[in-house]
Amino acid sequence: MTAEMAAPAWMHEQITAEQYDSWSEEQCAGIEVVDGMVVVSPGASERHNRLARILANALEAAAGPDWNADTDFDVRLQDVPLTNRRPDVVVYRAETIDITPTRPEHVLLVVEVVSPGSETTDRIVKADQYAKSGIAFYWRVEQAATGVPLVYTHVLDPATRTYRDGDVFTGVIKVSAPFAVEVDLSTI
């Protein structure tokens, strides 16, 4: 193997929170860190990104001034071994906008839009990690073959640190918790 073909060290060794925090925003884009190992995520489809953006905009408008909703930034689930997830949508306390890294205690709701290749991770692994870290609400958006998304809502049981199944929506989401919001995803 020539020097040009050698994989970077971070592909073979656990990284620390300090190492990750020293990386530029460009270096951190498109990756997550799980148990200290860098996981590279493939680029999302336009449909995936549009679903996330529409949800983030609707959630932010409905949440009021105490909460922000954004796409594509890290939530630090644990420091050792480092686990950073990058949910598709995050609703977090507005007062923590300048606090880095964003921690689970700053977050009210995370949304994952399931894509080919992320099914098991989004349906099982991330849901378990978000619940164990104490994030109160988890929504999973499935891109159905009909083109109309299915949205599965989950609420944290604080005693067991697991999610209970909530409502399932086809196209139009209408919930009262964590705050009242209605958003139509059927036209995407």
Rank of each mutant, 00 (worst) to 15 (best):
L55D: 11
V172L: 11
D74M: 11
A6P: 00
V114M: 08
I188L: 15
M37S: 04
H48Q: 12
R53D: 09
A29I: 07
T83R: 08
V181N: 06
Q143H: 05
V148D: 02
C28K: 15
K126D: 11
D88Y: 08
E25M: 03
W23F: 09
S115L: 11
G64V: 07
A52C: 06
I173G: 01
G171V: 06
Q19E: 14
M37Q: 11
D66F: 14
S118C: 09
W139K: 01
Y130D: 02
R86K: 14
A144E: 15
A44D: 13
S176V: 10
E26A: 15
D70M: 11
F179L: 08
Q27F: 13
S118T: 14
A136L: 12
V148Y: 08
W139N: 02
W23C: 02
E105F: 11
V114Y: 00
A131I: 03
M1Y: 01
P149H: 00
R50M: 07
M11P: 07
I124G: 00
V125K: 07
H12Y: 11
P158Y: 10
R164M: 04
I97E: 15
A61T: 15
S45T: 14
G43A: 14
H106G: 03
V38C: 04
G117A: 00
V183L: 06
A144N: 09
V114G: 05
G30V: 03
V181G: 02
V151N: 01
G147V: 03
R76W: 00
F169T: 10
Y130H: 03
Q19C: 01
N84K: 14
R85I: 12
Y138L: 04
T71M: 05
E142M: 07
W10S: 10
D128C: 04
T100Q: 12
V175P: 02
G171M: 07
E105L: 09
P104W: 07
H106L: 08
F179G: 10
E13A: 11
E95M: 05
P158W: 09
K132R: 15
I124D: 00
I135Y: 00
A29H: 04
R50S: 09
E18Q: 13
E112A: 09
N84D: 08
A29E: 11
V34A: 10
T162P: 00
